[in-house]
Amino acid sequence: MIAVLGLVVGVVVGLFVRPEVPAVVEPYLPIAVVAALDAVFGGLRAMLDGIFVDKVFVVSFLSNVVVAALIVFLGDKLGVGAQLSTGVVVVFGIRIFSNAAAIRRHVFRA
């Protein structure tokens, strides 16, 4: 419950406070968000499986974000930033879908 509250508060703060994002971080923000979403879905699935460990969640969340940003950064330096970020989004999208399928099986039993 507290976790859900945290998400809601984050969205509200982001919408109303309008924090300025530093220009350096800006290109990596969308990829980082997708990576974090992937980690959150993985965590939710682990919780439903009854094997949720907060340490694993924190590490996977942070590493997902960092690695995704790193890949895009590297892609930008190599001149294939657009393609690489598309690839990252595709991979995370697939993982989110598979996690969502597992969650769905738990919640709806179907």
Partner: peptide
């Protein structure tokens, strides 16, 4: 666990909204 997840989700929500 709830607190840690809340903090991370707060960050996620922030990034999402921005």
């Amino acid at each position: 666990a709830q607190l840690i997840v809340a903090v991370l989700l707060f960050v996620l929500g922030l990034g999402l909204a921005i």
